[in-house]
Design a protein around this nucleic acid. Structure first.
Lengths: 220, 220
DNA sequence: CGACGATTCAGGGAAAACCACTATGTACAC
DNA sequence: GTGTACATAGTGGTTTTCCCTGAATCGTCG
């Protein structure tokens, strides 16, 4: 085993969580945390300066989110691997992160050992995507069966789907949405179930959570 | 002089974060983590079994949220102190938590040392509310003061009604609300229809609008 | 042209929500 | 001890959503 420990940077806006992860990672003999950052911008600066092996990146942060930060870091530092760490098992996020250059994606609900393993995996050049995610995306089967015969990737959200999802999150019933958009209730049902499958939202509460997260819901 | 360490239970749905906190807390000489739980329900079971000194409780969790779990634990275990740990400085949450019996409230963006300090504080019987919060509002103080004087009586809407309305606005179904609050679906229907009549809300969309206006809906 | 994606719509059965009305136990005040 | 407020729960009936399947129309792009 080389003397060289894996050099890790942590980017997360929650200090407590960051410090918890530090003590977990530093307890490993083969890796160490060389810097921390509280938002994407800071993370980029630290990465530029220190050229770490792995950046563990939270997805949702103030200032600059993890997707944009990932994109910028990868553009400048091709060698550095990015491991996304997020609370949301959202296939669209996963896809956007993969496109931005992340090679790993683990959920905050995973065990610590899994995160540690993921850091080792991406550092070695492998891809690591959370098992829970891969299983979930099978559960979206009825949608996939329709359009994605053979393909695994889930498409982006269409305008109409987003419109329906937004109105759903605002609490409108299918009937109200149908009237507002001059379409039938059945069409609303279709769009809703499709978009919810794409985003891995299981119920209306998930839809509200997603909309809040996107900043779609504001007092007006 | 107690050689007895403070016995702490952690409740948070994110395993990584939990384990990070464990290593932080166990590194202290005067406290130790005796159990963990991934949702409110589990947390209640563990607390019943182990009667800890302090429960560190995340607010937003699947199955049962921290507020309801706090209420139930306090009802059964008056001695146990509850320290709420949350990502968002939402005065409504803080008020509800205080009402439910939590005696401390710290933000995830705080430094680890502050969380450790807060655990010691609540364990000693003191209240601990995050400095960042107190600047935002003195809601807790005024709320507790009123509560002591028995002036809570929010006039129109009862606590239970507000709770049901909030969950409705968050998109939870009657069934989900009933499970969360340990009451029957019929009771949820009653509260919901009463509060909506009081506020002249005609449908769920109105409820969402009202909640947004009250600042009840935040990304979490 | 042919494939694909986006949008639209429908049937049918199970589940859930919605509505109006009634009712019980508890706590607290006067 | 009577009244009021509150939380709880029920009956019974109507409406709506949810879930699954299938399918027609209209662009665009190679």
């Amino acid at each position: 085993m080389g003397m060289n420990k894996l050099r890790v940077i942590l980017v997360d806006d929650h200090a407590v969580i960051r410090e918890g992860l530090v003590s977990l990672i530093d307890a490993q003999s083969d890796m160490q945390v060389i810097a921390q950052a509280g938002d994407g911008r800071e993370g980029i600066e630290q990465a530029r300066l220190l050229r770490p092996d792995v950046v563990v990146m939270d997805v949702s942060m103030p200032e600059m989110n993890g997707i944009e930060a990932t994109r910028i870091i990868k553009r400048e530092l091709a060698e550095t691997r990015i491991l996304a760490l997020t609370a949301y098992d959202n296939p669209v996020y996963m896809r956007q992160l993969a496109e931005a250059g992340a090679t790993g994606y683990v959920l905050k609900r995973s065990a610590a050992q899994e995160v540690i393993g993921a850091i080792r995996a991406v550092a070695s050049g492998a891809n690591y995507f959370d098992r829970a995610m891969m299983n979930e995306s099978n559960a979206v089967g009825s949608f996939n069966a329709k359009r994605l015969r053979g393909e695994i990737k889930s498409g982006e959200i269409t305008d109409r789907e987003q419109e329906v999802l937004l109105l759903t999150a605002h609490g409108y019933t299918n009937k109200e949405i149908a009237e507002r958009l001059y379409i039938s209730v059945k069409t609303v049902e279709t769009h809703k179930s499709n978009v919810m499958a794409k985003l891995n939202l299981k119920n209306r509460a998930d839809a509200v959570r997603y909309a809040l997260h996107q900043g779609w819901l504001r007092d007006s």
